[in-house]
Amino acid sequence: MPRHDVRVYDDIFEMMPSEENPTPLVRVRNSLPDESEYRLYAKLEWLNPLGSVKDRAAWQMVQDLEARGEIGNGRGIVEPTSGNTGFSMAALASARGHHMKAVVPNKVPAEKKILLKMAGAELDVVNDELCPAPGLGDGSINLAKTHAKAQRDRYVMPNQYENVQNMEAHVRTTGPEIWRQTEGKITHFFTSLGTCGTVSGTSKYLKSKNPDIRVIAVQPSEGHDVPGVRNVSQLEVTKLFDPDLIDEILEIDFELAYVRAVELLQKDGLRAGPSSGLIFEGARQILQREGQGAGVGVMIFCDDVFKYTSNLVKHLPELGQGLEP
């Protein structure tokens, strides 16, 4: 049995988040305009064993594939991934003795590609810049599907965009953790949209406990380059998007994602990545609009900033200055 009280574990799998072993909730104070009755918490998903919220979905999908006998005996995984899911999945699969091929869009930062290789994944990099055309779908999803279809004995594609286990992970873990950590007092849940597993699964659980909890999905403005999140216009790839589980979709100028990420590190000591910055800005705007009466908000801080330094320099050029003698 895992010993969460002293944090001694037999293997990485015992460390996976659960109601008994939740990722921390930390109150964000300093970056907010005023002191208020409202308590706004960040859920620090980078403290998952492999560093992001995606550990939850990846572990759930790997366990499901093992349970159904879909992987093993030389048959591994192929998955289209922009980074975090692939990294978690590759590391978890490798630790379980499975191989993995990650199909990655070329625009993904080099840091993430290198991490995938370090985790044991074989990379297949796709140029996504082709002229848009009817019914063609996403290049990396197509290539992963091709591998899964052409080499059925070598690969199965979990497909995080369609796999209900991605959502189920959050029904089983993220939702119950937050409910317990806030003692059932949560009033607002803030997250972003990607595969929509996090928003759909967590919302499903929380609303089953209290239908009045407001679920706000924060999305970057169109043309954004915030890794790992999608604008609603980009959601045709996912089958896990359920508008009935979302009360409001709030669009944020994507440049603010970078500004807030650095602010969170400098004022709160939170090493938040750009998608966390985006969600924080969304929460700020909701609080400004609705006032700061009693309430408890929980924001998903998907991963930390370490993988995104070059991305931040692009948007905050002053970070790139004074680096030479």
Binding site: L143, T146, H147
Partner: peptide, 11 residues
């Protein structure tokens, strides 16, 4: 194909 690697991945 436009993508000259696609055939090798599966045809």
């Amino acid at each position: 194909d436009v993508d000259t690697k696609a055939y090798d991945a599966g045809h």
